[in-house]
């Protein structure tokens, strides 16, 4: 896969451990991030994989 670039800044995204809020909880995960503007990219496999799994686990009663 070719390197991902930030649409806004045009620079290559770099992997970075990133904190994010999801379903009321705070998690961290290494995702591609623009070193200029800080925009993070959530890969499809992450959204449909681990994040969906966590979402299922957090489904309350």
């Amino acid at each position: 896969m070719s390197a991902l670039k930030c649409v806004k800044c045009g620079v290559e995204l770099k992997p970075k451990k990133t904190m994010f809020e999801y379903l009321g909880n705070t998690f961290s995960h290494e995702v591609p991030v623009c070193p200029e503007c800080g925009e993070a990219y959530i890969p499809q496999e992450l959204a449909e994989g681990r994040m969906r799994e966590v979402e299922e686990q957090l489904e309350d009663k």
Partner: peptide
């Protein structure tokens, strides 16, 4: 355990 993989 705040890391997504570990938490999952």
């Amino acid at each position: 355990f705040t890391e997504l993989e570990s938490f999952a």
